[in-house]
């Protein structure tokens, strides 16, 4: 666990609230180097638990969890020689509990799970854990593909204290105490041009 540096400490961000209330203000939570260190630590933590991944399936939650899932699978394959890695993507749109409660309808994304999850150890991968409702939907959605032996949750950012449901991550990149008018933005080089995590405060 060479990369297991103590990154689980909580960031205090309350001071941003004193900024101009009409504009958006942004603070960098993680830069590209820090994101990279965290990704390697998470990969190592997965290996520690799942060894050769022969009975494990990584599931990226659509849409934003797919970037993290792809990154982790690349790191596991290239840097840690995990050869037999099964990766899928799960769309939870039709399983959400806020259908017709939102102003705009939700756009569905592609689900890509080319294997049964029956009796497998499933790891859900998402970028930000906030209310826990997406993961609740994912827990229901995955049942359509069989009965997994176990389900774990890996998130890059854990927004502590904002949970609506009793759901906690098994692997977390960084924990933050963002309050409700703050937004956590996770950027990926392949999609947004850079690896970084920002906290944005709405005025």
């Amino acid at each position: 666990m060479i990369f297991a540096i103590a990154f689980d400490n909580v960031i205090e961000i309350s001071y941003i609230c004193s900024h101009n209330t009409h504009n958006m203000s942004q603070k960098t939570l993680l830069n590209s180097k820090e994101v990279n260190i965290i990704l390697h630590r998470l990969a190592c933590q997965l290996i520690e638990k799942h060894l050769d991944f022969s009975n494990t399936i990584l599931i990226g939650i659509q849409p934003r969890g797919t970037f993290l899932a792809n990154r982790l699978s690349q790191i596991l394959k290239n840097d840690y020689q995990v050869s037999d890695l099964k990766l899928g993507f799960l769309d939870i749109t039709f399983f959400r509990d806020d259908f017709r409660r939102n102003e705009k309808p939700f756009e569905a994304n592609q689900t890509q799970i080319e294997f049964l999850v029956e009796d497998k150890n499933v790891v859900f991968i998402d970028d930000v854990l906030y209310t826990g409702r997406s993961i609740r939907a994912a827990l229901t959605a995955i049942q359509s593909f069989g009965r997994p032996k176990s389900i774990e949750l890996l998130t890059l950012i854990d927004r502590r204290f904002s949970r609506d449901l009793p759901i906690q991550p098994d692997y977390r990149g960084r924990q933050v105490d963002a309050i409700n008018n703050e937004k956590v933005l996770v950027k990926w080089a392949e999609n947004d041009g850079e690896d970084a995590v920002y906290i944005e405060v709405k005025g």
């Binding site: 749109t93 039709f94 399983f95 259908f99 229901t140 959605a141 049942q143 359509s144 593909f145 069989g146």
Partner: peptide
């Protein structure tokens, strides 16, 4: 085409 072909949306 899933083993369980139902979603709870409606």
């Amino acid at each position: 085409n899933r083993p369980i072909k139902k979603v709870p949306s409606l």
